[in-house]
Design a protein around this nucleic acid. Sequence first.
DNA 1: CAAAATTCCTGACTGC
DNA 2: TGCAGTCAGGAATTTT
Length: 300
Amino acid sequence: MPELPEVETVRSVLAREVITKKIKLVHVTDGRAVRRHKNAKDFRDELEGRTIKSVERLGKNIVVGLDSGRHLVIHLGMTGQVLRAKNAKEPKPKHTHVVITFTSGEELRYVDQRTFGELYVSTPPAEGEEVEVSKFARLSIGGDGLELRRQVPELAHLGIDPFEDQVGWDRFAAVLRSRTLALKTLLTDQDIVSGIGNIYADEILFSAGLMYDRVSESLSTIEIRRLHRTIPEVLTEAIKHGGTTLSDEMFVNPDGEMGTYQELLQVHTREGLPCYQCRSPVAKVVFHQRATYFCAKCQG
DNA sequence: CAAAATTCCTGACTGC
DNA sequence: TGCAGTCAGGAATTTT
């Protein structure tokens, strides 16, 4: 459920709070959260004694730069949370899987009810070793995305990040015309466009006036330009509001604060309620085993 | 090769 | 009240 705006909200709090801090201890209490590592000790050894240099984001991944030259990657999956604590005395929530303690005594806790999320430390490629970056990301003419993919090979497969990669509408048109996928499937495929999930796909398609099952190659130039423009517009607005916290209250930032963009959702979770544009009821269908909300009158 | 289905997981909720 | 069944969905994996 955390998508680009929620991950960006977490990133910006972490960037403010943990850069220059030194990691003293790492406790893993559920090995599934660090499953890419051969064991929890291997993960711990990569972090203890390291200082945090940067906190970036690519798609739905938080990328924490370490003074070792390696990167701690955090993916929140469906229900993952990164929570700050002043000290070890603050009670640990249920499903706390990893605790990172800084030399200051402050902690970062990784909490994840469903354990779809994960943390791992990525090793950059050896000198002269080439990283195969996804062909869609290679369309970018700027931004930090390409360099980040080269530093973190596990993320090299990610498609266009709406903020970290710069891809103009004409190249975006080539992406759409190269596939025959439904628009929602394309927008949520992380290997094509990274960062968009079920909520924002519905919201972006509503704002662009496009039906979720329109085949990507069928769009007119005007429709492509509208979609290309709408993606960053919707995501930027959601970031301004600290992301979306649905009624399950699963998303909170590291300070435990909920987002407010749920109040601004146009269609997602609004089944049967009047469309803000035309007053006809918002519809819900299951599309590729995912709940999909839309206005049949406003989206074509 | 692409596209669709399956799988992982826990808690909330539904119906009997 | 209990309990089996269902649903939520990101992304790696498997199947078509």
